[in-house]
Design a protein around this nucleic acid. Structure first.
Length: 383
RNA sequence: GGGUCGGUACCAAAGUGGUCAAAUGGAUCUGGCUGUAGACCAGAUGGACUUGCGCCUUCGGGGGUUCAAAUCCCUCCCGGCCCA
């Protein structure tokens, strides 16, 4: 159940999404734990990191169907009772699973697509695996997340119009099959706890986005994702797509922009009515030494009228920080920054390849993103 | 003192007459990372600029041979090892 509480003059929405694990305040950002861990962090650590930033919202993390299916596999996941208990994700935290649709794109050289589903050659050992929409649902049921994503397909960017059209049609047909599988699953379960989201495709073609959205809305999903973006198109193009897609999604359902993005992109999407985000950027960039910091002289990341985000990125591996004994970000409240770890020390850890470097950086970047979302929520609700 | 092996760019180390500003590692620097095959990838690392299959300066120092030398010869300096 999603309750839209308030809409800001900028177009940004504040809402509350109920799951059995608690209430998620939107807009929110989901850190990515593809294989059952946010790289370098344990689930309890991640949970308290999220809690520390905003204890009024339920922490949520994203994990992945394709990757967890390959390892540790369904038998073990069943034995563990799902990934959440397996990874020690606290009972008070929520989870969303991506369907494996993105791997059709990112592992495109290892798969073939048919109407029935996708044949993958495992990137781990080369073995063959078939994932259909139904099987993706089954895997997600075993993983046991609160929010499941329909199995979708999208071409890269740029894409030929006929390919985009095909992806929209196939995604709709697959969405119907996902929906049907989940409906019968729910009948067998009695109580319905998990939510199923459909994923709108259509690349940058407004008419196809509209068609995709309408076809999915007709299937009545619990929420709607906008997929196939942030795959190489200019940011302005992405914003245009949002403008041509969001109006076709019912306002009483959460809207999820998949895989986005940089802070300014998140803000622009929020102002266009998006409620949920996930992205690899804060965690991956942290591992690569690229850190998000407040702009000097600014205590908040988001301008108080939601007009812009104020931040910089620093490459902590740079020589210019070798003697910088300041914290990464003076205005940051993360444990890395408040514990007094200096830029010079973190740079040193990177240069000698100590795993602690990635860990401290991940804690910082994730905090930055979560703080960004909290500021956005606070701004919407306080005005 | 004798013998022997060696001294190449930030470090290590190839190269032993032309296709060498010099392979390959390491190190360093600069970029890029958007529903995570990536603690990864790409580029740069003698100098200047009009950024060129071009120019200048380099392969311990000096001097030769040659059309041409990091590569051959002479000599000096320095280091490792062995013998006295």
């Amino acid at each position: 159940m999603f309750r839209l509480i308030r809409t800001h003059s900028s177009g940004a929405r504040y809402g509350e999404l109920q799951t059995v694990h608690g209430t998620l305040r939107t807009p929110f950002f989901m850190p990515i734990a593809t294989k059952g861990a946010v790289k370098t962090l344990s689930a309890p650590e991640l949970f308290s990191l999220e809690r520390d930033i905003d204890n009024e919202t339920t922490p949520i993390v994203l994990s992945n169907t394709y990757h967890l299916y390959l390892k540790p596999g369904l038998a073990l996941l069943r034995q563990a009772g799902g990934v959440a208990p397996f990874m020690h994700w606290p009972a008070g935290g929520a989870m969303l699973t991506d369907s494996g649709g993105f791997q059709i794109f990112s592992l495109s050289h290892l798969r073939t697509i048919t109407e029935e589903g996708v044949n993958f050659r495992s990137h781990i050992d080369g073995s063959m695996h078939h994932i259909s929409p139904e099987f993706s649902m089954e895997i997600q049921s075993v993983i046991g997340a609160d929010i499941w994503m329909a199995f979708d397909y999208f071409p890269g960017y740029p894409a030929a119009p006929e390919d985009v059209e095909h992806s929209v049609q196939l995604t709709t047909r697959w969405a119907k099959r996902c929906r049907a599988w989940v409906d019968s699953y729910r009948e067998g379960q009695g109580a319905t706890t998990q939510k199923l989201f459909g994923i709108v495709q259509g690349s940058t073609i407004a008419k196809l986005r509209e068609q995709s959205a309408k076809e999915l809305v007709a299937l009545d999903f619990d929420g709607y994702a906008i997929g196939g973006l942030a795959v190489g198109e200019p940011a302005e193009e992405m914003y245009r797509v949002l403008e041509s897609t969001v109006p076709h999604i019912p306002s009483d359902r959460p809207r999820y922009l998949m895989g986005v993005g940089f802070p300014e992109q998140i803000l622009e999407a929020v102002k266009r009515g998006v409620d949920m985000f996930d992205c690899v950027l804060p965690t991956r960039n942290a591992r690569h030494g690229s850190l998000f910091v407040h702009r000097i002289g600014h205590e908040s990341i988001v301008a108080n009228d939601l007009s812009e985000v104020q931040y910089e990125r620093i490459n902590i591996k740079s020589d210019k920080y070798s003697k910088d004994f300041n914290p990464i970000d003076r205005a940051c409240l993360c444990s890395t920054c408040t514990s007094g770890f200096s830029r010079a020390y973190i740079r040193h850890l990177f240069s000698v390849n100590e795993p602690l470097a990635a860990r401290l950086a991940t804690i910082h970047n994730l905090t930055f993103y979560l703080q960004l979302m909290k500021e956005i929520r606070d701004t919407i609700t306080h005005i």
